[in-house]
Design a protein around this nucleic acid. Sequence first.
DNA 1: CGCTTAGTTGAGTTCGTTCAACGACTGTGG
DNA 2: CCACAGTCGTTGAACGAACTCAACTAAGCG
Lengths: 250, 250
Amino acid sequence: MSTTRATHAFKTPCEQCPLRPLPTFREFSHDELDFVSKFKRGELATDAGATILVEGAHSAHLFTILSGWGFRYKALEDGRRQILNYVMPGDLIGLQGTIMGEMQHSVEALSPVSLCVFERDKLMTLYNKHPSLAFDITWMAAQEERMLDEHLLSIGRRTALERAAYLIAFLYQRANRLKLFNGHKTIPITQQHVADTLGLSIVHTNKTLRKLAERGMIRWQERACEVLDPDGLMSVAEWDGVSSEMRPFL
Amino acid sequence: MSTTRATHAFKTPCEQCPLRPLPTFREFSHDELDFVSKFKRGELATDAGATILVEGAHSAHLFTILSGWGFRYKALEDGRRQILNYVMPGDLIGLQGTIMGEMQHSVEALSPVSLCVFERDKLMTLYNKHPSLAFDITWMAAQEERMLDEHLLSIGRRTALERAAYLIAFLYQRANRLKLFNGHKTIPITQQHVADTLGLSIVHTNKTLRKLAERGMIRWQERACEVLDPDGLMSVAEWDGVSSEMRPFL
DNA sequence: CGCTTAGTTGAGTTCGTTCAACGACTGTGG
DNA sequence: CCACAGTCGTTGAACGAACTCAACTAAGCG
């Protein structure tokens, strides 16, 4: 397991943030952008497979994903692991640790990931001086809650095939909205990740994904999942998709 | 199914709130209490079984549970239902609807429930004028996220017996902290609720609960679960319990 | 008194698991 | 350059957990 490679060089100024112009993100006022710029302490880059945040740690920082894919997970003492959700550019991580002291989940990188680092101590200033940004943070927490609600419904009540279809459609839609695909619509996860997300064994996950592949909805290649038929997946899962509303972004 | 009985009579002034003195809740300043008092629009009482909030609705209100038990749930189109979490006194409900427009889950009362009603429109004022309360709302959203993380781990990775033990220990601990028990430690849920929470069938839930009863950890009586051995349940589930830190309360 | 709801139990079936073995590919060290 | 180990995906066989179907009790209520 590789570790986090800390490069605190300040690379991208917020005014030239490559993410912000995306149509999904709401526009920021001059004032807001100015504050975020000062709130940002630096950047951090990690390799694929690196652990970004670890359960039990008292993180002094708050992060926004600038690029790359990752996932949040929890584990039981005997090693059984559950992936809770995936993180993508624009997502805030470490909020739990910042607000309530201790992290109760870990975050691992699926691909090389770069992060914006924010100062924990300045969070109170944000709440005091920039209510609109404070509201944004609540918004993002509520949005995460929504996704978890959906995952819970999925794991609790959907069949293996429906679950798999839901997961892939879900990841596809989120990534697509962020314009993460260029040509081939490929999600960088292994079947082990899928298994740990769906609460299934790897063997049965493999057989289930095979069925989706036989229906021409996905193709598995070199530890990644290529999405061929997002609508088909959505209909298998009886899933309507995520709301298309504008979202905030720190 | 009964409906919500709307009694907008303003009964309990916030200064004499029966909940606030509980040791779990953080102390409020005069200023904060004053604002909450004005933020509160009235009270609402519902019968057991009543639907408090419904999926898809654009709720104009935000609520705090004053007394009683309830649960949040989502359902698939074919009727399969998943209970996401339980709500108890001090919990905020309707935040998703208030912040993001549409509710994506429903809330139902398990017992007679009374609620404080807050004005949605005044929420921006809260963020503008009372950053500490805004922070509290984020805190509560993050706390809900934590609970959902745990549930997801439970449903995804624990066995039926462990899941059942976890759920009951979890509900016991939350209720106990709120001093909801007087003598007999009884949780007002049916086995159907347990099944819909754990993602199991009623039949198998029944057989699983039977095992816990045989071990002397619980006793089932008149549509409720009496908790006899909370520590035993926690050890079956390999669960450490929730953090004992002070919490906010609107 | 019949009707409904909640809980219980047994029998048979299905879904998902574990165990096991194998091929393809990658990276590493001799 | 090859041998070797490690990861990832694949498949078959046997087993077990959880499901459905079905029947029955007990309690509460109009």
